[in-house]
Write a protein that binds this DNA or RNA. Sequence first.
DNA 1: TTATCATTCAACCATTTGGTTGAATGATAA
DNA 2: TTATCATTCAACCAAATGGTTGAATGATAA
Lengths: 116, 116
Amino acid sequence: MNPQTGLDHTLMALADPTRRAILQRLTHGEARVTELAKPFDMSLNAVSKHIQVLERAHLVKRRREGREHVLAANPEPLDAAAAWIENQRAFWNHRLDLLERELKAHDASQNPRRKK
Amino acid sequence: MNPQTGLDHTLMALADPTRRAILQRLTHGEARVTELAKPFDMSLNAVSKHIQVLERAHLVKRRREGREHVLAANPEPLDAAAAWIENQRAFWNHRLDLLERELKAHDASQNPRRKK
DNA sequence: TTATCATTCAACCATTTGGTTGAATGATAA
DNA sequence: TTATCATTCAACCAAATGGTTGAATGATAA
């Protein structure tokens, strides 16, 4: 219903170091839940939950292969997140440009043609 | 202590539409708390708290001017967030390249010099 | 001075998060 | 078949979020 909810989920999912590590691991290739859990000092169940959060954000997709679940990264939602941030930076830089221009103009009128 | 805590805070702060709206508003210029709160259908106190979350993430800075607090966006933490995401995408694209190359090689050996 | 304005602090509340343990499910291997 | 393996489900817990209201603080205006 709320269209920015996707972005909410994406950023929320990324805001946890365990989940970022899982994602990073998955960009190097698919992995099963147990494999993903191995590096972490927490229960398998905890990792399972983290994966579900990543799934809710559509940052990973799951394929059932018999008794094992194979996880793969799906970086598509990252596009919206990157776009939001870049947009933010663009506006910010635009504003800085305006400021600088104004400062230069002020400078010139106050103290024209000075060196350095 | 944990160096990625900054990124945690940044992404967590961005994962809320109210806070993203506040940030966006601030890229167009400084504003006081009351001004920032006006568009939102929630108490002034709630917005005050959102601002504190943005402050914790160093995404806004506050200047006291008499009884009013003037807020300004500080986009610097966005750099790390953007960098993380871009890095992620780079690795992903690299992996896709490898995959495509492998597919092409396989194709060629299976069905060499076919058209289309 | 005193009232008002801008803001935070404090306490409270419901919900979500991030973790645990133990049992259930469902596929595979002996 | 039966035991084992991979995984989730369910219940629980502590802490954090996102909101509320009411009082406190501190600057300004009458």
